[in-house]
Design a protein around this nucleic acid. Structure first.
Length: 684
DNA sequence: CTTAGGG
DNA sequence: CCCTAAG
């Protein structure tokens, strides 16, 4: 507590605004826009630190109201230390994070958010007050965490893998969650396929909700350099919770849509902005771990443009961004079965995870499968047309194609998970279309009926396959390859082919979406900055990851404006005058709320732009206005009864923090005003 | 462009 | 989320 005073923090542990609004404003307008607060220790951090210290010392709870459940945190911390001391296997360290993530209380969470940061914080801050073994412990934590990064990654992966497998098994057991496809024989191949796809209901959404595990073979490669760890402390900024929620909206946004139309209107400069934006988002991955105190990766020069043309883009974005992006799925292992053959019990209702079973087996099989890009299909065909003209397809599972991810070794496991998740979800997201193959031959004529194509014959069903191809209308803006830290790819790089799809549909599809992944994953992913997997809600599922050599695999091949803009142009035309569409509603996830709360606690209300940059810099679809609005609703939510609340319930703990922070900053604002008033009064 | 607030 | 006045 002494520390607080000494360091000049607000009594409540909130940081007093360091820059007058006017100054900030000026700063903003100026070319140099520096974030003042980031190099300062946040009061909350301090609190956490103090709490951590207390806890580490086994003194139990801290005094601040913000520090609750100290015991639990204590347990975690001590536990982790113990593990470290015992040389417990490194994988367990991840568990620490996970435990933390499960925590519902402030400190614990904070700790989990930035366990490393806080640890380092402990080392640096606490030492100054009274050095003790506490510091050692903290250091150990930090070091331990880092040291075993490279060496033990494999083991970690294995752990994840096994978990995944078991999970997968679970899914398999729940075969009720398989997807049945029943298609009129008379329907044409294309239609039926699409219909089925649609019946899946936005898979992406489900995916997000579900704890489904994705198992990918050879998808993750971590460069295991030597300088893996910066021994000292971590950058201060790391305690920021930064949500990386790249938005697919952006992708479909007018800004980048490579549609011919757009191009006509949009001079290249826009693309430039776009690039910068992308770069920004991605750069973060690489740079973050190496940031120095106070250094902000959000260099003004880079950030500025983002906001700069935002408005300009906006309108155009809106014209498109809201059109639901039909999520499609990669059908890898598809089984066609007789509906009568005992699968009739399967319900078709939608439920999370339904129909998704990401096998632990390598996805490479899919790539090199019998049909190349086609999905393998085990089939049993209805022996007869007893049910007349219906072919029943039973899709047993899906598999995500091979991915390739490169991520800095200094990245956290959490960010790795998110990266993978991002990649996976992106692939699942959109930009894919289904191709139908029969006996290895692609059926291009969408107008043929199943009957005509022979899909209705059992003998042929054995060779029925679905392939994934890049959706013609899907467009991904070009990305910068160079020193792009994050790299996703699948299998061998193939020349991007336009529609008509390349021989290997999957490849192209994957690549395509892969490129997309770099830019605009379809949905929420947590930021790289979040140290732990604290978010439990839409948290990325655990995945099995394999370490695989980078090979000579090329970076993501960027589909050059591969746009037929088929789906787009008509839309625009019909929309006449580009009636601005309302942005799609995207409820804040708990983790987002958490990030917001934390940022506001630190920065206060009224600095939404900073909040945005701090915690949502990579969440392109969250504008500072959104954040402000969300805060507004949060405050409101916190004040109403639990019964009146709707949507995903926000942990009371968070709401408490909201109220606390709101109260504090309101008061602070009032004070400032008073001050200002008196000043002007004095002048008069 | 940002904030602040009403809608 | 949107819209907008005001800075």
């Amino acid at each position: 507590m002494v520390l607080q005073n000494r360091l000049g923090y607000g009594f409540n542990g909130y940081q007093v605004p360091s820059t007058p609004r006017a100054a900030r404003s000026a700063r903003r307008r100026g070319s140099i826009r520096k974030r003042v607060d980031d190099n300062q220790i946040c009061a909350f951090d301090l609190l956490a630190t103090v709490a951590g210290k207390l806890l580490l010392e086994g003194q139990g709870s801290a005094s601040s109201s913000n520090i609750q459940n100290g015991k639990e945190m204590c347990t975690i911390v001590e536990d982790s230390i113990k593990k470290e001391q015992q040389g417990a296997d490194k994988a367990s360290k991840i568990e620490i994070c996970d435990q933390g993530s499960c925590g519902i209380h402030h400190i614990s969470k904070e700790f989990s958010h930035a366990h490393i940061d806080y640890c380092s914080g402990l080392a640096s801050v606490i030492t100054s007050s009274d050095g003790s073994d506490t510091v050692d412990s903290a250091d150990k934590l930090v070091d331990g965490k880092n040291k075993n990064q490279p060496g033990n990654f494999a083991s970690k992966v294995e752990v994840a893998s096994s978990r995944c497998e078991s999970f997968d098994g679970t899914i398999e057991n729940e075969n009720k969650e398989q997807i049945n496809m029943e298609v009129p024989t008379t329907g044409n191949a294309s239609n039926s396929t699409k219909a089925d796809m649609c019946s899946l209901d936005d898979p992406a959404v489900r995916f997000r909700k579900s704890p489904a595990l994705v198992s990918l073979d050879n998808i993750v490669t971590l460069p295991l350099g030597t300088d893996h760890v910066h021994s000292g402390s971590f950058p201060a900024c790391r305690d920021d919770v930064n949500l990386v929620i790249r938005d697919d909206d952006e992708n479909s946004s007018g800004c980048t849509l490579p549609s011919t139309m757009k191009k006509a209107f949009r001079p290249s400069p826009r693309i430039g902005d776009r690039r910068i934006r992308k770069l920004l988002a991605s750069k973060y991955w690489k740079v973050t771990p190496k940031l120095k105190d106070g250094e902000n990766f959000n260099a003004d020069s880079e950030t500025k443009p983002v906001y700069h043309n935002r408005k300009t883009c906006y309108k155009r974005q809106r014209s498109q961004r809201d059109y639901p992006i039909k999520k499609r799925i990669l059908y890898d292992r598809v089984s066609v079965s007789n509906f009568d053959g005992g699968v009739s019990h399967e319900d078709k209702t939608s439920s999370p995870r339904k129909g998704f079973s990401f096998g632990a087996s390598g996805s490479a099989a899919m790539v090199h499968g019998a049909f190349g890009n086609s999905a393998g299909i085990a089939s049993r065909h209805t022996p007869s047309q007893s049910r007349d003209s219906h072919v029943k397809l039973h899709i047993k599972s899906f598999k995500v194609p091979e991915l390739f991810i490169e991520i800095p070794e200094t990245a956290t496991v959490g960010s790795l998970k998110r990266t993978v998740m991002e990649a996976v979800t992106t692939i699942l997201g959109d930009g894919l279309r289904v191709g139908v193959l029969l006996q290895g031959k692609k059926i291009r004529d969408d107008n043929k009926t199943l009957l005509q194509t022979g899909i209705s014959h059992d003998n042929k069903l054995d060779t029925l396959g679905f392939s994934l191809e890049a959706s013609p209308s899907q467009a991904s803006p070009p990305l910068c390859h160079e020193d792009h830290p994050l790299l996703l790819t699948c299998d061998a790089p193939q020349p991007l082919t336009r529609y008509p799809p390349p021989p290997s549909g999957v490849h192209s599809a994957v690549q395509h979406s892969t490129a997309d992944a770099l830019s605009d994953p379809p949905f929420t992913n947590l930021g790289n900055c979040i140290e732990s997997d604290h978010d439990s809600a839409p948290s990325p599922p655990d995945m099995s990851i394999d370490k695989s050599p980078v090979d000579s695999r090329a970076l993501v091949s960027i589909p050059e404006t591969n746009v037929e803009a088929l789906a787009i142009v008509p839309m625009k035309k019909s929309k006449r005058s580009e009636a601005v569409q309302r942005r799609i509603r995207r409820p804040f996830s708990v983790s987002e709320v958490e990030a917001l709360v934390q940022a506001v606690e630190k920065l206060g209300t009224g600095r939404w732009r900073d909040v945005k940059m701090r915690a949502f810099d990579n969440a392109k679809h969250r504008t500072y206005v959104d954040l402000k609005d969300k805060w507004k609703t949060l405050v409101h939510t916190a004040r109403i009864s639990v019964q009146q609340r709707r949507g995903e319930p926000v942990p009371q703990e968070l709401l408490d923090r909201v109220l606390a922070a709101h109260a504090y900053w309101s008061q602070q604002q009032a004070k400032q005003q008073l001050k200002h008033q008196s000043e002007t009064f004095l002048l008069l």
